[in-house]
Write a protein that binds this DNA or RNA. Sequence first.
DNA 1: ATCGGCTTCTGAACCGTTACGGTTCCATTC
DNA 2: GAATGGAACCGTAACGGTTCAGAAGCCGAT
Lengths: 371, 371
Amino acid sequence: MSRPIRTRRQATLASLAAELGVSRTTVSNAYNRPDQLSPELRRRVLETAKKLGYPGPDPVARSLRTRKAGAIGLLLTENLSYAFRDPVALGVLEGIALACEDSGIGLQLLPAGPGNDDVSTVHRAGVDGFIVYSVPDDDAHLAGVLQRPVPTVIIDQPLIDGVDRVGPDDEAAMTSIANHIIELGHRSIGVLCMRLSQDRNDGPAPLLRQHQAHYHIQRTRLNALATTFDNVGVDWSTVPVVERFDHTVADGASAAAELLEAEPQVTALICTSDILALGALEEAVRRGLRVPADLTVTGFDGIADAERAGLTTVHQPVKEKGRAAGDLLLDPTRTTGTAPGSAQVITLETELKIGTTSAQPRTTEQHWFGL
Amino acid sequence: MSRPIRTRRQATLASLAAELGVSRTTVSNAYNRPDQLSPELRRRVLETAKKLGYPGPDPVARSLRTRKAGAIGLLLTENLSYAFRDPVALGVLEGIALACEDSGIGLQLLPAGPGNDDVSTVHRAGVDGFIVYSVPDDDAHLAGVLQRPVPTVIIDQPLIDGVDRVGPDDEAAMTSIANHIIELGHRSIGVLCMRLSQDRNDGPAPLLRQHQAHYHIQRTRLNALATTFDNVGVDWSTVPVVERFDHTVADGASAAAELLEAEPQVTALICTSDILALGALEEAVRRGLRVPADLTVTGFDGIADAERAGLTTVHQPVKEKGRAAGDLLLDPTRTTGTAPGSAQVITLETELKIGTTSAQPRTTEQHWFGL
DNA sequence: ATCGGCTTCTGAACCGTTACGGTTCCATTC
DNA sequence: GAATGGAACCGTAACGGTTCAGAAGCCGAT
């Protein structure tokens, strides 16, 4: 394959037109509107283009003129490499990608890892819109995105007035888990939750921290638990909540260990994600606790590994979530201007999946048998 | 959050400059070179910008002027959604993402699924370079990429003269597996391979098809096997090779079934990927064949699931592969022009991992014991 | 002969920015 | 009191296209 050596200067549409003795318009038409010029001339244009090594209209210049970049940006505050490992994030990503493929639109992953305060990447991204996936309320990159005059859809969190949002009804979902646990008879529970704030806190999350959580979803889920358990007489302020900054099975295990060490009387461990719950299951094995006989464990998300493990959890349709966000953003019928109050909020169905990791606590069990 | 209602027309750098009574240059400097103007004026510029709802310099216009898009494009011929499910592709993706994050560069996934002949998405992508991952030799999108006057790095395949390439030494890797199998004493083998061409062929792949394979890597791997086995007197033309278009465990299983049905005497199944091999293992169980006592199975790639299964395979560092490609593409010391002959070829180390799925065939075993 | 309509091509405006090479002005320095 | 130098700001020319309202030419219909 002989690639022409770059001459002094890349050929442009103008130089090609000059070479051919036609107008720039005509060359442009040769590429974009073949019906606007005679087949013969078009052939000559394309042929000369090849001869001159003209690679076709410059995408950036075209974008400037047409005001279309042909791509959308995806902002997630985690490192990209993490996103490729988390099953939930991957599902969302897949859904978004599906929507993009259908529209023939590129999907630009923005480098905006945590601790990276440089918002310029967001300002420099030539995209027609943004999808923001699960970032904290006070995220600087998100603020940068909202400044841009392009449509934006937020998945999961945060909830921002006037901005489209796609996500599950976390409150209802978590409440359904709480009710399940309550119906089983558990009154001594513990909770493992994900990062509540940008500042690392691997340990107990006191009430104040729970209320001030920068992650809307975690806040909502904890609130749902608090309300539901308070209603049946369990004083939420006495319920141990252990937080982990990183989101791995190992962290779930260590959180479970920490909690069970401090509060051995706990009969049910409610986790705000399946990953944490899988860790809790591992830790239970390590401690010789039988699940669910000695300890009930529940998750959240409904990932494949959780199903394999028979975890009691709430399933949310992650792929559909990404898909819905993509479709919403790319919906051509919507005007790009974010007229105040016109924001769409799409709430996705969740489903309580009762697996083999939840059962009545032993004391209650005896009570039932005694009936 | 009150977002200003868009006025008749978006404010631009020029209108902002007019409003302030300063030159456009000055406004530009306020954003890009704060040291070029007094702090006081800069403050005024930014303040007025906020008042007018000017969102900062337009990324596309800036890109046109600076000739930098701040993103690279990633081309893979599979559907994006597939890529998010294949462990090898994910590893590569993760590596690339890592490199991008380090450079603060966006990663644009291009929608170019199979059967999508529309190359325009490649032509429309405003990116500073391309990474092409594992596409067939005659891929139309790849041709489009190579036309673009930006640097390109190809991962795995195809091998193109004058274009940077990152990949393992497939020939050496496959040869090491072949030698392992030969040393164990196997002489009656079968092969399961991945797609050899864009046209679907779920079934036997005769010699001609093997040689004409559009996927460079599969061709190389099969060739390595052919050469090595021919050398020890196994007539390659008699070795059954079964091809699968889709790349799933289920397809591996069905391919194994097809092959073992037709050639029950086979004692070793060499697969060109771990996924196929995992399928073969499943099929062996289904048939009541003990692995490795009755059947030896080998894979290629060294994915996590393979390790878990104890699969004998060749490990290749997928993450490092993506990383190397990203680093190579983003390397600022390299000139962007692809001077002929200056293409870099990075070959990655592979490692033969002998697991618990390979052993001597039974007849040989008896022979050995009989010594 | 005139007119309308079609095809084919053109000229000029415009998209919003940054690079480049100034100019202006004031404070130092000798 | 002129020369020097730096800080602050500016004007112009790209960057490489697309788009729109015509112009020119040709043809058949009136």
